[in-house]
Write a protein that binds this DNA or RNA. Structure first.
Lengths: 208, 208
DNA sequence: GAAAGGGAAGTGAACGTTCATTCATTTCTT
DNA sequence: AAGAAATGAATGAACGTTCACTTCCCTTTC
């Protein structure tokens, strides 16, 4: 009764998806507060009036944007979990994500979310949900890799997961630099992440 | 001729300093774009008209705010350089700064600067100046500690310095968490920083 | 010491612009 | 024909900035 998805609903959902991708660029260029509804509608290729048929308010767009990113993130983790060597796949994914975020507007968006989360409670909640989801997924990966119970993994490595999230975010938000400087910095960051993951892996070796 | 500082000038400068401290809170609460001139003037305890006697525009306030932070930073480094064990003092200062930033509005302001720097070239320049100053100072500390020439230090450890800056910034910008989670995360961050500094120190041991 | 002058400090209403949001209307799609 | 999709002008509030004006404080003059 509640979720009878008609073809129309699906099409509308897809449309919203597409609009979010376009709007993201406008937000990246002007910031959440700096981008006007005119800017956003123009970026989406439609009039202001029609734009309001898809989002009830400006604040709602931001929330849906974050929710969209969360869904994408969970998709990546689904891939990782189906891989035969989750920790290794995770490591590769992280390196790839950092690279991708740096060369598109994602880093910009995350900087905006980070700043906004510190002043607007609703955005803080959305960002918290995102972080909680990622760390929970990381706990799953760690548990799968080590064979240890989720409770123990959580107790010992939750902060490791938070640290990895912090590092990936910080790496994404970096201002552009000379390629060699950027690569050197990325290497250091990835080294730290590897170290964190190695500590997790070491926990499983004791069992073996 | 150019810089005959009258008592009046000094008083005005001090006033600007005080206003910046007040305005910082308003910016932290509403963001650079979100805070209106009315908000800022109210935070400074004066009328809008009078506020414009101290700053020619909203953009100018932000630039002066960053310049102010840069000056403060350089003051800290001056202290560090006069210490008998610069690297040790640096380590303590970093731990202290992270703690201080987390419990006042500084982290909020840095999140705002980070986001704004990615879209506004003037702010990007100001932020670059800040990063360049900090890394240059770190190079001085490293050179002093290891006895190696500045050129070699720069070649080998510039990225280490950038990484330390990134970590301190990221730590400051963290959303509030449960105390034990925050402490665990801070420990991991400080461990990484210690590691970077240890690598620098190791370079000097070879000489001894 | 009182009066007068002058410039800094401070005010808040006013200006033109832009903002988020609404809605009567038109154009597509089926 | 009917409902979904799309338009853009209209609305009132809020924006950054300006400005004519008042108040304060200190120096000079008598």
């Amino acid at each position: 009764m509640t979720s009878v998805a008609t073809a129309q609903d699906l099409r509308a959902e897809q449309r919203t998806f597409d609009i979010l991708a376009l709007v993201r660029v406008a937000f990246a260029e002007k910031g959440f507060d700096g981008a006007s509804m005119q800017d956003l509608a123009r970026a989406a290729g439609m009039s202001v009036g029609n734009f309001y048929r898809y989002f009830p308010s400006k604040a709602a767009i931001v929330e849906q944007l974050i929710a969209h990113d969360l869904a994408e993130m969970e998709g990546h983790f689904a891939e990782i979990m189906t891989s035969p060597f989750p920790l290794l796949t995770l490591k590769q994914q992280v390196a790839l994500q950092i690279q991708l975020h740096q060369e598109c507007v994602d880093g910009q968006i995350w900087a905006e979310i980070t700043a906004a989360a510190l002043r607007k409670p609703e955005i803080a909640q959305a960002a918290d949900r995102m972080e909680a989801s990622i760390t929970a997924n990381l706990m799953q990966v760690f548990a799968r890799e080590t064979g240890l119970p989720l409770a123990e993994i959580t107790k010992r490595f939750q902060s490791h997961a938070s640290y990895i999230v912090l590092l990936v975010k910080a790496a994404s938000m970096q201002a552009p630099r000379a390629p060699e400087a950027r690569d050197a910095l990325n290497t250091l960051i990835l080294n730290t992440i590897d170290q964190m993951l190695a500590e997790v892996a070491r926990a499983s070796l004791k069992v073996k």
